[in-house]
Structures are given as structure tokens and as C-alpha cells.
Amino acid sequence: MSAQQERIVATAVVPLDFTYNYRVGQYVERYIKGLGQKKIMGVKCPGDASVIVPPRKYCGRCNEIMNEWVEVGPEGTIENFTIAHVNLNKGVVEKADTEYIVALVKLDGATSLLPAKVLGVSPVDVEVGMRVKAVFKDPVEDSLEDLSHFEPAG
């Protein structure tokens, strides 16, 4: 591209910086309060008996309102996992300092999956079917981050 063409190429930079405040809703509110007591709470569908964690109001399959609260975990089974080699920082992909495991965990008593970091096991040793348990922050602070990560059970 010639210097002359370069001069007519201009960009209007619009640095919008929005902050949105989404209410988590009644179900996740109660879920977070459960984490504050080191309990993982799900809801059970009266139609197909699914137990969904984190909880949500409707079972899409049955069109039923789920309102029976059940405690699940704190142990569970790894159903699927990935080994992340990158972090994404505000849209920019960065190489992670160390590779880390993110797994989809089926908590005992739940039918849905929860994604979570798994520590205490090497990426070469992680496998589907591995038993893990939830590790909570101490002290808890009534936030989603109270459920810190999972580690091998037993």
C-alpha cells in the first residue's frame, strides 16, 4: 500500500466501556447462599426427575417448574475435560503459564454438568470417570467463588 493510500485510511476509534449488572435471579441467588454454607444445591424436575446444578426455573423437556431443592455432591465424577493451553484476557489469547484442567463434573445426585478447574492432578493423569470433590474457600464469603475448584477425592 502506498503512502498516499495510507493517509486516506482513517479509523474512528470508539472506546466504549460498558459495565452491565445482571441479576442472577431467584434460583442462582439461593444457590449462592448454599455455597456460603458449603452446600451445593440443585433443583429436581417433578417430570423427569432431572437434578440441575446450578439450578434454573424450568425443565425445558417437561415444561415443568422445578421447585424441589436438593443438596448434591460434594463429590462427583469427571464426565469430560479439556486441557487449556491458553487464557483469554479481554479478548486477547495469551499462552497460559502452565496448562490447566477444566472438567465437566457430574456431582453425586445431579444429572447436569458443572464446569470447574481441577487441581491436584497432572494433565497427563486426568481421565473421564475420575472421582473428584469440591473444595470451598475458607472462610466463605457468600459468593460464587466460594466453590473454589475440585481435587481428586479420597
Binding site: T82, I83, A84, L88, K90, V102, P115, L144, E145, L147
Partner: peptide
């Protein structure tokens, strides 16, 4: 947000990279 910082260094961490 389960142990991960959405828009910080581990952004979209649960997704292991977007």
C-alpha cells in the same frame, strides 16, 4: 466464576479459551 476470573487473567477460563 467458579474459581475463575471472567474478565481478568483467566478470562473465559471455564471454556479453556473462548
Amino acid at each position: 466464576q467458579h474459581g475463575m476470573d471472567l474478565f481478568g487473567g483467566k478470562g473465559m477460563g471455564a471454556m479453556g479459551g473462548g
